[in-house]
């Protein structure tokens, strides 16, 4: 496995670029330095900056678990989660900054799952919490899109794994550029309107603890991504709207929602 741990500024992957580049970015301004020019992220054609397996942690925000109330003790759950509850956003879901999120005909309204993505730099197997962050190459922004579903008993593959349901990027900011990943503001805007605000300070398992508890039973490899959790009150959006997920100091990930039928191969012919 090639270690990813040596990002200096940010890992950037643009369409047509044979290799990812390590270049300075300004997460607050949404700009990237290419050659001698400072370019707005919105003016470029992006690829997802990661190619490993993307795992997510369910109900890792205190408010998200609290929102379930006493239901966590009732059937079918019978008890709150003990170990991290994980899921996978498979390869078909990954899509880039600026790419359309397909809105299926059977689900006109989608949930926007704003989250921080922890990008693994070194093979992490049975890592202790105090050493966990040394295995992180950097951080990215993800939108864990779902068809709204209230039931967490079964893995919701048909709700979470549709094509294009995991925008990720625009880039991976070097871990060294993020002073405290446990205190980052997360905001979601739909058509420019602030619809959600939270912070990674509200994680039940902070990032280092999460990596330790996950790698106790499964190895994370360089390039794999661990989504730290989606805050409660995920906003919904429809075709024709634009969603932006912002993680302070990491980036702003923006995508339009487009009816799936308009994106089918040949649909515009």
């Amino acid at each position: 496995m090639t270690p990813l741990s040596a990002i200096a500024d940010a890992l950037v992957r643009l369409r047509g670029m044979p290799q990812p580049a390590d270049v300075p970015v300004d997460p607050a301004a949404g700009t990237v330095v290419l050659g001698a020019r400072r370019v707005a992220a919105g003016a470029l054609d992006w690829e997802p900056p990661v190619a490993g397996t993307v795992y997510g942690a369910l109900l890792n925000f205190r408010g998200a678990l609290a929102a379930l109330g006493d239901a966590v003790h009732a059937p079918p759950y019978k008890a709150p989660p003990r170990a991290p509850v994980l899921y996978i956003k498979p390869a078909n879901t990954l899509t880039a900054h600026g790419a359309p999120i397909p809105v299926p005909e059977d689900a006109p309204e989608l949930e926007m799952g704003a989250t921080l993505g922890v990008v693994i730099g070194r093979t992490a197997c049975r890592v202790e919490a105090r050493e966990a962050l040394a295995h992180v190459a950097g951080y990215t922004v993800a939108n864990d899109v779902s068809v709204p579903h209230a039931d967490y008993y079964r893995p919701s593959v048909p709700s979470k794994c549709r094509d294009g349901f995991c925008p990720i990027g625009p880039w991976v900011v070097a871990a060294s550029r993020v002073a405290d990943p446990g205190a980052l503001a997360i905001r979601v805007y739909v058509d420019g309107e602030l619809r959600q605000a939270n912070t990674t300070a509200n994680l039940i398992r902070p990032i280092a603890r999460l990596i330790a508890d996950v790698t106790e039973f499964m190895t994370l490899s360089p390039g794999d991504v661990l989504l730290v959790g989606v805050p409660e009150g995920a906003p919904r959006a429809r075709a024709g709207q634009r969603v932006a997920v912002e993680v302070e100091g990491v980036g702003r990930l923006e995508n339009p929602l487009v009816p799936e039928r308009e994106l089918l191969p040949g649909a515009r012919a």
Binding site: Y55, L58, L59, P76, Y77, K78, A79, P81, R82, A83, P84, V85, L86, Y87, I88, C125, Y152, Y153, R154, P155, S156, F217, M218, T219
Partner: peptide, 17 residues
């Protein structure tokens, strides 16, 4: 032993190294 009723079967049961 590791089954939980959240996204069951959870990865701790089914995605171990």
């Amino acid at each position: 032993d590791y089954l939980e009723n959240w996204y069951r079967p959870n990865l701790r049961v089914k995605n171990r190294d």
